[in-house]
Each structure stands twice: as C-alpha cells, then as structure tokens.
Design a protein around this nucleic acid. Structure first.
Lengths: 190, 190, 190, 190
DNA sequence: AATGAATGAGAATTCATTCAT
DNA sequence: AATGAATGAATTCTCATTCAT
C-alpha cells in the first residue's frame, strides 16, 4: 500500500542480490514488497525493465553517494580515498555481500546488452573517481593503471568475500589499497 | 552418438559459461551435444548433478594442468609464475571469457552449498599454488597475503574483461603481477 | 471461468475416481475443469496437495452428510441404518463406482503417509458410526466387531461392483446388512 | 543372469504389489531382477504384456494351490474351508499385504479390459470354490450368496489390513467366516 | 493501485520402448 | 541374453505476463 517505484527498486536490490537475475522471480520480489505479482506490473512493464531501473538507480546512487567523494575538495586526497573505501564497502557488505553491478553484469553479459551498458558506465565512473585521486600524485597513464588495479582488487575481494562468506577479504583489500597509497606517497615525496 | 560423460561435461562448460547456471536449460546443453534432452538423464541424474560434475571436472583440470605448475621443480620460480599465468589465462579467455568457478560460485552462492564447497576448494588450491611460489622469497604470512592479492587481482581482471568484452584487462593484470614479482625480487636481493 | 477451489476439488473427485492417483495427470483435471494445467497451480501448489484437499473434502463430506445420520436422534436405529446405507451407496455408485478413500488409500499406501492418515481417519469415523448404532443392541465389544464386519462387507462389495461393473454387489451387501440387523433384533428381543 | 520369465514374474509381483501398476516403472522391476530395463524387453514385449502374464500366473497359482483345496475329497468340508483360508491368507499377507488381483483390478478398471478379464476370472473361480463348499449344507442359491459374502468380507478385510498396516483385520475376518460356518452347521443339523 | 484468476510457453524430469553392439 | 545409449512423448511444475474486477 502506497508503494512507489523507489520502494520497489530498493526491495528488488535485496532479492536480486541474493539470487541473481534469472533465479529471482517476479513473485519473489512481489513477496518482498508485500504485494502480489500482478500488482508489480502497475509500476514496471517487465522484469527486464525493472532490472534496468534497479541498475540505473544503483549507478546514480554510487555516483552521488560514493564516487562523488573523490571530487570533494574539502577533504585531503587521503581522506577521500578512505571515505570512498568505507562507503563502497558499506554497499558491498550489505546483506549477503557482493557487488550488484558485477553480479548482474556477469550473469547477463550474453543475454542483455542494455544491462551491460549500464554496468560498463558504472565501472567507468568508478574508474574516473580513482583516477582523479591518483592523478594528484602520478601521471595520467599511471593513475589510470592504478585505478584499474584498485577496482580489480576490490572486485576480486568482493567476489571472494561472497563465495567464502567472509568479510575479511574485502577489509584486507581496502587496507592494502590505503596502505599502498600512503607508502607510495612517502616514496614519491622523497 | 555414443557420447560419454566427459564429452557432455566439456560441452556443458561452454554453455554454462556463456549463460550461467539458471539461464541454461538442459535443452540447451543437449542441443550443444547433439542429443535430446531426455537422453542427458541417461548420463546425469539432474541438472544439479551435472553442474557438480562440471565443477569437479574443472577443479581437477586446474589442479592437474595449472596449479601443479607451481610445484614443478624443473622450472625457476619466475618461469613457474609465468607459465601458471599463461595457462590460467588460456582458460579464462576461452570462449566468451570469464572464470567458470567464480561465475557459478557467485550466481549460486545462496542456493547451492554443494557447488559452493567445490568452488571454495578451487580457490584454496589456487591460493596454495601462489603461496608456494611466493614463499621462496617472503615469510609465510606475507606470501599468504600476496597470494590472496594475486587471486583478487586476477579475478577482478577476468570480471572486467567479461563485462567489457576486452581481454586487455586480464593481460594487464597478469603483466603487473609478473613485473611486481621481478621488481620485488630485485629489491629483496639488495 | 472464475473457478474456486471447491469447484476444482469436485471435478478432481470424478477424474481421480476413474483413473486413480498415478494415472491421472494434472492436465486431465485441468481439462475437466475447462482451464489450462498451469492455472491449476494458482489454486493448488501440487498434485499431492490437491489430492490431500480432495481427501479432506470427502472425509468432511462423509462425516457431515453420511456418518452423522447414525447420531440423528429423530430417527429409529433401524431408520438410521437404512438411511446411512442409502447415503453411502449414493456416493459409492456415483460415476464409475468405487470407494474413493479405499481406492486412493490402497494405491498410495506405500508412497504417501499423508493420504494414508486421512484415509485411516475416514475409516475410524465410519466405524464409530456403525458402532454407535450397533451398541444399542449389543455390548461394546460385539458392536465393535459388527461395525468392523459391516465395513468389510461394504468395502468388499464396492470393490467387486467396480471390477464387475455391476451395482448388484453393493445392493446385495446393503440388504444383507439391514436384514441381519432386523433378524438379530428379533432374536435379541426373544 | 539365467533369469527366466517366471523369475521375472515373481519379482514383478513384489514390486507391483507395493506400488501398483502405474507407479511402478519397468526400471523398478529390472532393478528388483538385477538387470537393466532394456533387458526386460527380451522377455516381455511391453509393461502391459508383463502385467498380463503376472495376472495369469497368479490366477493359475490361486486355482492350483488355493481354490483346488475346495475340491479335495480327502478332507472334510470344514478342513477344506480352514485350509483354503490359511492358504489365501498366506498370499494376502505376503510382503506389504493386499490382494494383488483387486489392487490391479481396481486401479486399472477403466484403462485396461484385458487385465479386467483376468481379474474377473479370478473372482469367478474363487466364488466357485466357496460355493462348492457351502453347497454341501445349503441350497444353490444360498450357497452362492454365502460365497459372495465370504469374498466380500475377505476382500474388505484385506483392504483394511493394507490401509492400517495391521494383519488383525484379515485374521478376524477369517475367524468369523470359519466360526459362522461351524455354528450354522450345528444349527442346520438340529 | 491492487487483486487474483488465467494464460501459454518452457522448464526439469520420467519413462516405455527401441536398437546397435 | 544382456547392455547401455538414445528416443520422444508425457508429466509435474514455474513463471512472465495479461486482464477483468
């Protein structure tokens, strides 16, 4: 009752993150929302459309709430890196753990170009954020590489965390990134 | 005609890797094998059982063909690392690209403990291989950490490669790993 | 259209009685109901669940409409026996003939404890009804025995009626029971 | 190995009696015989043909081993009745309990006229046996009726025995029949 | 907006039967 | 006689979607 699109999207995130796209039924989502599956079609024209809106919602959420931190000039570069890490960690550890974008992106890579486009955008924005931070200390090319590496490390860590049901993997990865950053900064200064 | 279990498992790897577990139907696999879906049940009692055998097959394949390289005393540590990288790359780039174990492991993490157990084993064996290599130059604790990091980096790279349909991600990651190894070796020597 | 559970249950009784549990498909029942097989699952979660509801429905039906006659104090014992006979006969001769409870009970005895429980309940209630009637003229032990015998005779008659496609078997059995009752009553009085 | 038709028929009796016709697969029977299902088709052209032979085998078995007792002039009528009871009881209590003929007869009554014909023959022969015994003391019409009643009682008892998994039902029914016989004989003599 | 009944396509699975070896 | 691979039809069940109320 009085459910709006955003409510449904937020509930959908939970269910899709647990079971993936194909194993999640419209019924599952409706149940999570406390309505009947027929009613979902008042808000979304199809499961596919719902997922597209979920992905867009999350992309926007990350851009506004997480990646934007990289551009916050009120904080030191280091603080930004730390805050960005903490914020993304929050998301990746939510519920059962995992990166929604890569989960859906990987599952649906052959079947759904529209999902894929959004997922690629997400990664591009994430990379830009990291590149922006690193380019304070490194040249463009190296900053780019380091950003790519950072994302790989985090995504790999999230993946292992999900499979092993153990948050330490992600915690370790974030610590390594931050420590590397600090150590390299010192090296560069000298 | 006269297909055996291994033939079917190899065909299954292709189809499951493309579409994942839930989106792949027994019909899809049967079609790939050139038989009717009913005939598959002569060889495997269920889709679930088939996937278990596929995962076990791949785990054994990696152990015997890839991870074993780390223990090959006829090669230098560096050569082993390179060969191990090349061999795993071969697998991860096969077909549409992706790491079968992490794809299935992530998709089915909430629904299937039996898949999960095999996937965890796979990662444990992979980590042991890296740890074994790194412990030639580092203490146990650090070798362990470096192994974990290496796997994270590769898995993250494979994930980005799949999503962007671009093998460079993985190539880069492997190069970084090998270069890091060489550089660190020099640092340690001095 | 706009079928409800009870409509479907009543149609199911017909089909299941004709062919038994295993030879009846969900499709058969859906056809009888004038809907598609998928639609049945809107009302019943499985064939097994449907049969459980059919059995429960029939058990209640017999309790309320047939066995209750034994306790109707407005009728003489003899009238009750006659009416009870007539009412059960109506059910056993319906359609192709047969006792639904014993048909399903016997067919599914090894495969389905839940069906079995309901079937046993049915027979217990039937026996109680007969025992109640007979205990007006006999001691508890003998009334019990006579009730058991009565049910055996009727069930055997229904079985032969079904196999021979001849209602006379049941008619005969009911007459014998009623005559025995009358004759014994006279013997007892003297 | 070295299985012959009769071996298979005897194993089939066990499996069909447990699960009925439709729920029993050719595989189940093959398993019980220790061969593969394909091999069964060397001995029987179809499941239907197998059941026909099973029914014929049992009909012959009962005729020769059980019903023939009624015509054994070396025994008193009473002894014959007792022995006949004991022998049929043996069969009805075998394994999980139940009368094979009535189980299959009832399950397949609408689908299989060939089974039905054999089952009807079986009951005719059984009735003849009882009629033969009773006609030593009663007129043809009454002997006939008593035979019918006897069979109804036993069949009803076997049915309840199977459903309640309790052999007492059949034991009781047989005792009642024998006692009735003895008591009536005395009444008639006087 | 929500319900709930219905649809129809497609999923996994079973199974009687065939047949080359 | 037996095997084991394959068939193809049928079965139970699921699910995205539609629509009258």
């Amino acid at each position: 009752m009085a459910l709006n699109k955003e409510d449904i999207i937020k509930k959908s995130v939970i269910v899709f993150k647990n079971r993936g796209y194909n194993a999640t039924s419209i019924s599952d989502i409706a149940k999570e929302c406390g309505i009947l599956k027929g009613s979902l079609y008042h808000h979304f024209s199809s499961k596919h459309e719902l997922m597209k809106e979920v992905l867009s919602f999350l992309k926007t959420y990350f851009a506004e709430t997480v990646f934007s931190i990289a551009y916050n000039e009120n904080l030191t570069i280091e603080k930004r890196l730390e805050k960005l890490s903490r914020k993304s960690e929050e998301q990746f550890m939510e519920g059962i753990g995992g990166c929604f974008m890569s989960l859906i992106g990987n599952e649906c890579v052959t079947s759904n170009m529209e999902f894929n486009a959004i997922v690629k955008d997400f990664f591009a924005e994430w990379k830009n954020a990291f590149t922006h931070l690193y380019s304070n200390f490194y040249g463009q090319k190296q900053a780019n590489e380091m950003a790519e590496r950072a994302i790989m490390l985090i995504e790999g860590a999230v993946l292992l965390m999900r499979i092993h049901n153990n948050p330490d993997f992600l915690t370790n990865a974030q610590n390594w990134l931050i420590n590397d950053f600090k150590n390299n900064k010192i090296l560069i200064k000298n």
